[in-house]
């Protein structure tokens, strides 16, 4: 596949102007329907009662938080190896969104953990690696904004994102090790019944909604970046 097919900013803008509104409306409709199903129409779980409704924001945000990082890492590799001109812009456009998903995942998980496990926070593998992921997102945002030369910031960021993707599985793995030695009986396993169809609906809708939201916002942020760049080039070229 020719990667540079989408490299032309003008072509990307044409595609984005079609994709963005479609994704945006899908996100809006799916999130609205997901909220209706998740908060009203779906029954409470027979073990977890109403707290299960937190799952409908927690699970999609966790999923998207990881997906976003993987997508950023792939784009960072593309930016480093093939010097694709939109790839590092994508990384920069996606980072705050990923950070938002991760924060939402952590906090909603905390609100779920308190009534079900009796603790706001436990140091198990998932929580710890998610927290590290959040720091990686924040680190990327801070690093990419720390240079007078924006391009240097983005390029430094791609190296950080790629280093981080090695770290995330190791962190998860290491905490699992650490926990199996010190807390043999895991009280924290959710191990509820296999998910019922009434719960699958809102969950699926929310996942679709979150994903469409991600596509929409990345398109919008990329368009903004490209327009700003165009404007800057124009101002630099115009005399006086």
């Amino acid at each position: 596949m020719n990667l540079h097919r989408f490299a032309n900013p003008a072509r990307f803008l044409r595609i984005a102007r079609v994709v963005a509104p479609v994704a945006g409306w899908i996100a809006f409709a799916a999130l609205l329907a997901g909220a209706a199903f998740g908060l009203v129409l779906s029954p409470p779980d027979y073990q977890q009662s109403e707290t299960v409704r937190i799952m409908y924001v927690h699970v999609p945000s966790a999923w998207l938080a990881l997906q976003t990082y993987v997508a950023m890492a792939i784009a960072a590799a593309v930016a480093l190896v093939w010097k694709h001109p939109l790839a590092d812009l994508f990384v920069k456009a996606a980072a705050p969104v990923g950070a938002g998903f991760t924060l939402l995942c952590l906090v909603s998980g905390s609100f779920w953990g308190r009534p079900t496990w009796g603790a706001w926070w436990v140091w198990d593998a998932r929580l710890t690696s998610m927290l590290v992921l959040f720091f990686l997102y924040v680190g990327y945002i801070a690093l990419s904004g720390a240079f007078d030369d924006e391009e240097r910031g983005r390029r430094a960021g791609t190296v950080l994102v790629l280093t981080g993707i090695v770290d995330v599985p190791i962190v998860k793995f290491s905490v699992e090790w650490w926990n199996t030695l010190h807390q043999p009986a895991s009280v924290f396993r959710l191990g509820g019944p296999t998910i019922a169809a009434e719960m699958l609906w809102p969950l699926g809708l929310m996942v679709v909604g979150f994903t469409a939201f991600f596509v929409w916002i990345v398109c919008v942020r990329l368009e903004t970046e490209l327009l700003t760049r165009k404007l800057r080039a124009r101002l630099e070229n115009s005399p006086g």
């Binding site: 707290t51 409704r53 969104v97 939402l104 906090v107």
Partner: peptide, 21 residues
Amino acid sequence: GGYALYVWPAWGLALVILGAL
């Protein structure tokens, strides 16, 4: 079902974060 203090903040935060972004 008595869990308003947990369910609503979680959903509220989702609204705030997605909305702000």
